[in-house]
């Protein structure tokens, strides 16, 4: 498993690749802080065990237009 620092670097590279041309080096440093927070949050969430049966609390409802 990669370290948090590795994952932050990879995700930051993705942002830099897609949006870096519009961001200054100083702004990219701030983006790095944001990515760090995302990874911290994800790591905190991974500490909670989930069962296969724990579904997302979001119900998909198949759509069918009402016939008039």
């Amino acid at each position: 498993m990669s370290t948090a620092e590795d994952r932050i670097g990879t995700l930051l590279d993705l942002v830099r690749e897609r949006y870096g041309s519009g961001l200054s080096p100083e702004e990219l440093e701030h983006v790095r802080t944001g990515v760090e927070r995302l990874v911290e949050a994800a790591d905190a969430m991974r500490l909670v065990p989930l069962n296969n049966s724990d579904e997302p609390l979001a119900t998909f409802v198949p759509h069918r237009a009402r016939e008039v």
């Binding site: 995700l11 930051l12 993705l14 942002v15 897609r18 949006y19 961001l23 983006v31 790095r32 802080t33 944001g34 990515v35 927070r37 995302l38 949050a41 994800a42 969430m45 991974r46 989930l50 997302p56 609390l57 979001a58």
Partner: peptide, 15 residues
């Protein structure tokens, strides 16, 4: 921009 790198699996884990 940072959140444009958020992984789908992390979002679904949150859900």
């Amino acid at each position: 921009y940072a959140r444009m790198s958020l992984l789908a699996t992390d979002y679904i884990r949150a859900l």
